Simulated assay, not measured.
Amino acid sequence: MTALMRQNPALRPSSRTQSYAAIKAAVVHYTASHALTLAPDRIRVNSVAPGSIEFPGGSWEQRKKSDPKLYEGILRSVPFGRLGTPGEVASAVLFLASSHAGWITGQTLVVDDGQVLT
């Protein structure tokens, strides 16, 4: 597996998931454009780009069984050596929706434990 395949498809090209990467990139651009459009009305628009998230019944749990080599490769691409949880993504969303993020708009918050850096 190449490093290119492990990076967040919203922010990096992907040779393995081209259509998915294009849609993710469109969400990043749409977020920024929508934020600019709504800023005069003081409406903030942000998005979250999660990394590899594991939960019961999810695709990574299935991949752990069906393709352990791929799963282990993904684990190696995450600096802390584990996949994220839905709760960790939810915490980021709660932050962006809170008054603590009151001066943040047009941003895509990458929640991936630095996976995009590898």
Rank of each mutant, 00 (worst) to 15 (best):
M1F: 12
T2S: 10
A3M: 15
M5C: 06
R6H: 14
P9A: 12
A10I: 04
L11H: 06
S15G: 15
T17W: 15
T17P: 02
A21K: 07
A22D: 05
A22V: 14
I23N: 00
A25W: 13
V27Y: 01
T37F: 05
L38T: 00
A39W: 00
D41M: 08
D41E: 12
R42P: 00
I43H: 00
I43K: 02
R44M: 01
R44D: 01
V48G: 04
E54M: 09
F55I: 03
G58S: 07
S59P: 02
E61P: 03
E61L: 05
E61Y: 08
Q62N: 04
Q62L: 11
R63F: 09
K64Y: 00
K64N: 02
K64Q: 07
K65F: 04
P68C: 04
P68R: 04
L70I: 13
L70T: 12
L75A: 06
R76N: 13
S77P: 09
S77Q: 05
F80G: 10
G81W: 11
R82L: 05
L83R: 04
T85K: 13
E88G: 10
F95M: 12
F95P: 04
L96G: 02
A101L: 08
W103V: 11
I104V: 11
T108M: 11
T108D: 06
V110P: 01
V110F: 02
V111Q: 06
D112H: 01
D112P: 00
D113W: 13
Q115A: 13
V116G: 07
L117A: 11
L117P: 02
T118V: 14
